[in-house]
């Protein structure tokens, strides 16, 4: 298992260093130190040291156990959380390009026996995606209007949407609009529903890939 391997890789140097240290201590005991007999354990000192150390670390019993609540008891939360790819900025049929290039390659290979695959031509097909924009209204009030940039160095990967709002418990009307086709285009998906939330409860607005729709969970 790789975890075991990795852990071993960590433990081995530690063991190596420990053994080295131990051996060098053995060696340094020889040079110059007082001749060391193995002294019997000093029991009364042990008892006293234990008590002092106990007192020293005793505070951790409380310090590790003080109750803390980050949220208020009456808080509820609405999260917007999902991952979605915006549409491609430029229409570029990559598959088509590959097919054409392949054909050219085969043809020229037959004719000249030395061709280069023109990768740059393929590379020119822009893969950049549009940001994903989410608008969220609760009881008619705007909570969120934000664009989420595509990830990846070439901006060609999905956008990740995550927001958390603390809300009053109760029933709320939630409207959401989702844009993934770039500026000026109409919303690709929308949602209009009600959520009821009890204190402490978390509701999530998300985009479900399978259903292809915004849902409240």
């Amino acid at each position: 298992m790789w975890v075991a391997g990795v852990l071993l890789a960590f433990i081995l140097p530690v063991i190596y260093i420990a053994i080295k240290e131990w051996r060098s201590r053995k060696a340094s005991e020889k040079d110059g130190g007082p001749p060391r007999k193995k002294e019997p354990l000093n029991w009364s000192a042990l008892a006293r040291v234990s008590v002092i150390l106990f007192v020293l670390i005793l505070p951790s019993v409380w310090l590790s156990d003080i109750s803390y609540s980050f949220y208020r008891k009456e808080d509820a939360a609405l999260k917007v959380a999902f991952k979605l790819s915006g549409s491609r900025v430029a229409d570029c049929e990559e598959a088509d390009l590959i097919k054409k290039e392949g054909e050219r390659y085969r043809r020229e290979l037959k004719d000249t026996r030395q061709v280069k695959m023109s990768m740059s031509k393929l590379g020119r097909c822009p893969r950049e995606r549009n940001p994903v924009t989410v608008e969220l209204y609760m009881d008619g009030k705007k909570l969120l209007d934000k664009s989420y940039a595509p990830t990846g160095l070439k901006k060609d990967m999905a956008s990740y949407v995550f927001e958390e709002f603390l809300i009053e418990p109760g029933t709320h009307r939630v409207e959401a609009k989702l844009y993934r086709s770039g500026a000026g285009k109409p919303a690709d998906f929308s949602l209009d529903g009600t959520v009821g939330s009890k204190p402490g409860e978390i509701r999530v607005v998300r985009f479900d890939e399978k259903e292809g729709a915004l849902l409240i969970e």
Binding site: S60, S64, I66, S67, S69, Y71, K73
Partner: peptide, 20 residues
């Protein structure tokens, strides 16, 4: 429970003092 906000939990202040 991911469906609920965390309520009061015992907190190790020696390690977590920064979060509040």
């Amino acid at each position: 429970d991911l469906k609920r906000l965390s309520e009061a939990v015992p907190f190790d202040w020696l390690f977590m003092f920064i979060f509040p």
